[in-house]
Amino acid sequence: MTMQLTGIHHLTAITANAPANLRFYTQVLGLRLVKKTVNQDDTSAYHLFYADGLASPGTDLTFFDWPVGHERRGTHSISRTGLRVGSTDSLQWWKDHFQKQKVRAGEIRDVGGRPSLDFEDGEGQRFRLVVDDSGAPSHPWEKSPVPAEHQIKGLGPITLSVPDLRNTKIVLTDVMNMTETSTYPAPEGTGEVHVFSMGEGGPSAELHVAVEPDLPAAHQGAGAVHHVAFRAPDVEALHAWTERLRGLRVPSSGEVERYYFRSLYFREPNGILFEIATDGPGFAVDEPLETLGEALSLPPFLEPKRAQIEARLKPLA
């Protein structure tokens, strides 16, 4: 049986304003703050995780809080993050909601065969609400200001921008075992977007690759995406992916213990950072599900440095 990734695991982006970020994603988007921790490689920075009511894999939108300037948009990047909602009625609710909240948003339109609504956060982070009527289960957060039937169900599809498809396609299909399932005209500009599917497919398991050779190279900053992670069911599956990359001579980080999941990092040929992450053990491994995100959580290897770490962090309130 061919090894299969099962969908999008999480997406990590960059903010230069953690308090405003927290307000937007919890109060405007209605997501749940499920983990308040620090960047394990830079403990002066928050790492904030937002997700659904149960902190399910495939719903995590996360942010590094770094004091950086704004991104320079372009290719060689993850250019738009899909967020799934349940119906076209939900899209209309969100359009009205964004108007009231003065959020920059477009019009409801068809993108790649699905009703969609583009919007941006205050730092220019680019999103697309996409209707997912697949019947996939959702886990609303009971304390969300967004009505349960309109809450964001999770991530996907994720859009990459590359100047040339050829080498990226080889990695997606021959290394990562994705299948190219369709193409559609680029919503902005010219050219085509190529759809690659994982596992059973559907919007939670799609990567859309826009071929945009005329754009300059992107430069990361606030409003940019840092990396996208794909789902491996368990540690055994991750070991298999580690061996596969090694056997194909794809440079990688080797396996990294992130405590809430175990990960493997590598770059596709246009320099975009990919991660493969395990579904477990999850965010309730160190605090009760009922109170996720209320206190600063640190993995065991950072716990002895808690006092120093807390002293360097800015208040979120």
Rank of each mutant, 00 (worst) to 15 (best):
F49Q: 03
F49H: 06
F49N: 01
Y50R: 02
A51E: 00
A51D: 00
D52Q: 02
D52I: 04
D52L: 04
G53S: 02
G53H: 01
L54M: 13
L54G: 06
A55N: 01
A55W: 04
S56M: 06
S56V: 05
P57S: 05
P57I: 02
G58D: 08
T59Y: 01
D60K: 01
D60I: 05
L61C: 02
L61N: 01
T62G: 04
F63N: 10
F63V: 06
F63P: 09
W66N: 11
P67N: 01
V68I: 15
G69C: 08
H70I: 08
H70W: 07
H70D: 12
E71Y: 14
E71V: 15
E71Q: 15
E71W: 14
E71N: 14
E71A: 15
R72I: 11
R72Q: 13
R72W: 06
R72Y: 11
R73S: 12
R73T: 12
R73G: 13
G74H: 04
T75W: 04
T75C: 04
T75D: 03
H76T: 07
S77V: 11
I78D: 13
I78A: 13
I78L: 14
S79D: 09
R80W: 07
R80I: 12
T81C: 15
G82N: 05
G82T: 02
G82R: 05
L83S: 12
L83P: 10
L83R: 04
R84K: 15
R84Y: 15
R84D: 15
V85T: 15
V85F: 15
V85W: 10
G86D: 12
S87T: 11
S87P: 09
S87A: 14
S87N: 10
T88Q: 06
T88L: 11
T88F: 10
T88N: 09
T88R: 13
T88D: 10
D89V: 14
D89C: 08
D89K: 12
D89P: 05
D89T: 13
S90L: 08
S90W: 07
S90P: 07
L91A: 00
L91K: 00
Q92R: 14
Q92C: 06
W93L: 11
W93E: 01
W93T: 05
W94M: 02
W94A: 03
W94G: 04
W94N: 03
W94C: 05
W94V: 07
W94P: 00
D96V: 02
D96W: 03
D96T: 09
H97D: 09
H97I: 03
Q99R: 09
K100D: 13
K100P: 00
K100E: 14
Q101D: 09
Q101V: 01
K102D: 15
K102Y: 14
V103K: 01
V103Q: 02
A105K: 00
G106E: 06
G106N: 05
I108P: 09
I108R: 09
I108N: 08
R109P: 04
R109W: 02
D110V: 07
D110L: 09
D110H: 03
V111P: 11
V111S: 06
V111R: 10
G112I: 10
G112Q: 11
G112S: 12
G113C: 11
G113I: 07
R114K: 13
P115S: 14
P115L: 02
S116K: 04
